[in-house]
Design a protein around this nucleic acid. Structure first.
Length: 154
DNA sequence: GCCAACGTTGGC
DNA sequence: GCCAACGTTGGC
């Protein structure tokens, strides 16, 4: 099975590409959406490549590249009462939420903004460009991934 | 800060 | 199982 490509959203005020660069890698905890969880649990494999997307920022867009460095495992923040993403439905005996780990690869020489991506005919159909696209983890095709990297100066 | 789009919850 | 109400996301 060849590697897959993904887009993962993060609010830079919460966790940015610079934070990932500093940390080298991070556990992608806190996802509380079943569709996004299922992508992590069922489809994401070590070596898969990730567009690191800054959402809710000015401008929003792709800031860097990461790769999956650990497959899905139990998201322990779900049963931490003090965590923002605490979910009483999930327990160690009956875990609901999982997370992958991702590692820093590089920061794009040029940030690729959402308006720039919308203007690219090659990227038409990309999930993040669709109206109302709120999913925080999205599949990306290989050509879309490569095109965004090219736009970002790689 | 506004608001449209979406997901989830809960009454029936 | 329907659907209204609500909370959240995220672009603008």
């Amino acid at each position: 099975m060849s590697i897959r490509y993904w887009l993962m959203k993060s609010e830079p005020g919460c966790y940015s590409i610079d934070d990932l660069k500093r940390d080298k890698k991070t556990a992608w905890t806190g996802v509380r959406n079943y569709q996004a969880r299922n992508f992590m649990r069922d489809d994401m494999k070590v070596g898969d490549m990730v567009l690191f997307y800054h959402s809710n920022s000015d401008p929003a867009g792709v800031a860097g590249v990461a790769k999956v460095c650990a497959t899905a495992h139990e998201d322990e923040t779900a049963w931490d009462h003090n965590d923002d993403h605490y979910d009483p439905k999930s327990t160690p005996a009956n875990p609901i939420w999982v997370n992958v780990d991702i590692a820093f690869v590089e920061k794009l020489p040029q940030f690729v903004s959402l308006p720039e991506m919308k203007a690219e005919p090659e990227l038409r159909g990309m999930m993040v460009l669709q109206k109302g696209s709120r999913l925080s983890i999205q599949p990306v095709t290989a050509p879309q991934f490569k095109w965004v990297l090219r736009m970002g100066g790689i």
